[in-house]
């Protein structure tokens, strides 16, 4: 017999999938000149579920050749010796690394600060940094230590950016309806005004071990994707701001930015599309 929570989750996912199908292209269009990337959060457990999610990512890559994976923090749990990096990162994502997929990490509260120097994370020793892929500028932040220097930096970097898309990602979600952690309101009051002022389009976060797509808040789309290894089953609490949620299995996000559209699919550990849709960029920069 299905538990009430599972029924709720399934209902929401189904409704969201239908809404996605009605709203726009549910599948990723897989255009030749688009930016294709994936997002994973809270992945570094080294256990079977992480490997299975990584396997799904590898399978997807065969037909949807994403060039980039953004990591939303808690990239490693527990021990962080060289052997742990092999078990919790290099092995599960070996096929993607071999295919020259670039991983760009942000740190979470379970990551060692020294991990900024781990070469495959491509952080170049920086806690926060920016990089551009095609017409999309990414800003990776360190939400664990959001000091004034970093706030000043992100404000200046966003102000200077003339890229079509501005995407921020960091560990602690500004909006989340998971019961365990929920929204980081202290960070929201610091970051949201800056994001709104300088036209951030999308924010990705982890920390809560679920998948959630939040309805646009002040014009910004928020995703929580913190279940690429960890999972807190049944942890979501339906809220008026929830657009879609999935908390029954591990998952990751696959995204494609083509012109003014961002297509997305949230894919579960077993390869099921649990949410999909398209985001239209608000306005030209």
């Amino acid at each position: 017999m299905t538990s009430p929570g599972r029924a709720r989750s399934t209902l929401v996912v189904a409704a969201a999938a239908v809404a996605g199908l009605v709203a726009g292209a549910a599948a990723l269009p897989n255009l030749s000149d688009s930016l294709k990337f994936a997002a994973i959060g809270d992945n570094g457990t080294g256990d079977r579920a992480q490997y299975e999610v990584a396997g799904q990512m590898t399978r997807l890559h065969a037909t949807f050749p994403f060039e980039l994976v953004i990591m939303l923090g808690d990239n490693m749990y527990g021990g962080q010796s060289p052997a742990d990096f092999v078990k919790k990162f290099e092995q599960p994502y070996a096929a993607l690394l071999k295919a020259n997929v670039q991983f760009q990490a942000s740190l979470g509260n379970h990551d060692r600060p020294a991990n900024v120097s781990y070469k495959p994370y491509n952080m170049n020793g920086q806690r926060y940094y920016t990089f551009v892929r095609k017409h999309v500028r990414f800003f990776a932040l360190d939400s664990t230590l959001m000091d004034k220097k970093q706030l000043d930096w992100i404000e200046a970097a966003l102000k200077d950016s003339r890229d079509e898309w501005k995407i921020c990602y960091f560990h602690h979600p500004l909006y989340s309806d998971a019961a365990r952690h929920g929204s980081s309101v202290d960070l929201r009051l610091l970051l949201e005004p800056i994001f709104v002022r300088y036209g951030v389009d999308v924010v990705f976060s982890g920390h809560d071990h679920v998948y959630e797509r939040v309805k646009p808040q002040k014009g910004i789309y928020y995703f929580v994707s913190g279940a690429a290894g960890q999972l807190r089953k049944g942890n979501m609490r339906l809220n008026a701001q929830t657009a879609a949620l999935f908390d029954q299995d591990q998952s990751f996000l696959a995204l494609e930015v083509a012109g003014a559209d961002m297509h997305f699919e949230a894919i579960s550990r077993v390869g099921k599309v649990v949410d999909s849709g398209v985001i239209h960029r608000r306005q030209a920069p």
């Binding site: 939400s143 980081s184 960070l187």
Partner: peptide, 9 residues
């Protein structure tokens, strides 16, 4: 020592 956020909490 710590800015607002999880570490300070």
């Amino acid at each position: 020592l710590l800015p607002p956020g999880q570490l300070r909490s």
